[in-house]
Computed example of a mutant assay.
Amino acid sequence: MQFPESWLREFCNPPLSSEALAETLTMGGFEVEERRPAAPPFTQVVVGEIKEAVQHPNADRLRVCQVDVGGEALLHIVCGAPNARAGIKVPCALVGAELPPGEDGKPFRIKLGKLRGVESQGMLCSARELGLSEDHGGLLELPATLLPGEDVRAALQLDDVVLTIKLTPNLAHGLSVYGIARELSALTGAPLVTPEIPAVPPQLDDTLPVRVEASDLCGRFSGRIVRGVNTAAATPAWMVERLARCGQRSVTALVDISNYVMFEYGQPSHIFDLDRIHGGLAVRWGRAGEQLKLLNGNTVTLDDTVGVIADEREVESLAGIMGGDATAVSDDTKSIYIEAAFWWPEAVQGRSRRFNFST
């Protein structure tokens, strides 16, 4: 289980240093295997807003950007990133900045220089150049709410600490940030903050018929139809960053929201494309010879020891483990069915290992 310490402290914030907090969890049976900073050290990197980006006079792949970093004058910075354009906010390393070491192991210092005859007064940065990820396909685009000149480390909470906890099989209640917070509250006496989650009243009368045919597989099955979703909506930057610090890459807004809830509260969910479901759903044990193509591209052969969710035509999901490709959401999805269920531990234990993958 990997998560940022700042997220844990939103639920339980004892008056302990980061080191003491990790020691307390370890002594309580939740072994902290690793404590590491959310980002490697770097200096003098601020929020820059690109006011103008024009073609470099002597290079097809370079642009000359005018960048607001909160000072009296704009900086002239030459940039080769494909997404360098006016209106976005990005990390800007000022002259004198020191970036994380490159492949040679030496810190990279930013100096005043010229690129193809044009002076460059700094450097606009990708996520990889700041050591935040391996993504170097373009500049790291920052939230529009940040102000030019803000220190990037403070703005993105890059001095946060990422904790990795080794959990034994009897501590599955610790597979969420809230679950760890409950333990921390019990260990320290610090209050546990439990946010109110008001019920969202349905806006539709639509329902999807579901039959739970195997009560020894599923103890509770819940679902809701949502229509008119926008699959092109962008996941908020703060959510993308939190997921990244949990070791989870951003996929799409729908998938990211599902993953976020799982990391926060330990409740897995699955999102079906409603229009790809034929009839209703049945929660049952598999049948010998049935096959299912999973979201990871693997096709598995089932039997009566594996739980499934099936519609009137075929199996659509491996119960409690992974959804199927046939009902996966896509760019064309307009309506979804969100499923959140409780699967009896004995009914799902060891099944993913049997198929040689984990989720």
Rank of each mutant, 00 (worst) to 15 (best):
G122C: 05
I77M: 02
V47H: 08
K51P: 06
G307T: 00
F272V: 05
Q248D: 13
L204C: 12
T164D: 10
E5L: 15
V300W: 02
A233W: 07
V47D: 10
S358G: 13
D331S: 14
L94P: 00
R284C: 01
A59R: 10
N230F: 05
R276H: 12
V177D: 08
A310D: 03
H270C: 06
Q66K: 15
V78S: 04
S185R: 03
I309G: 00
R61V: 09
A244N: 05
P143G: 05
W343A: 03
Q55E: 15
N13H: 07
R353Y: 11
G179P: 05
V177E: 04
A86R: 14
A244S: 12
G219Q: 10
G174I: 04
L74H: 08
V306I: 14
L130Q: 04
P195H: 03
C218M: 03
V177K: 01
D325H: 13
D304Q: 09
M239E: 13
T168E: 15
P195Y: 06
A73D: 14
I225C: 13
A39V: 06
G179E: 06
H270A: 09
V118T: 09
V162P: 01
F221I: 00
R109M: 13
F272I: 00
I165A: 05
E34K: 15
L175A: 13
H278N: 14
I338E: 00
P236L: 07
D159C: 04
A186T: 09
D68M: 01
E312P: 02
E290I: 03
E98R: 15
E196S: 14
L112D: 11
D60E: 15
E72G: 11
V193E: 08
N230I: 02
H76V: 12
F355D: 10
E52C: 03
A244Y: 00
L292Y: 01
C218I: 00
F272E: 01
V152W: 02
L8C: 02
L16S: 01
I180A: 01
L292G: 03
V118N: 07
F355V: 09
D206V: 14
N58Q: 14
N356S: 13
P345A: 07
V32G: 11
L167I: 06
V95Y: 05
L302W: 03
E98Y: 06
P201S: 12
P195L: 04
G320N: 08
G266M: 04
R249V: 09
L281P: 06
D304W: 05
D325W: 09
L25P: 04
V32E: 10
E264K: 11
T24C: 10
L274K: 07
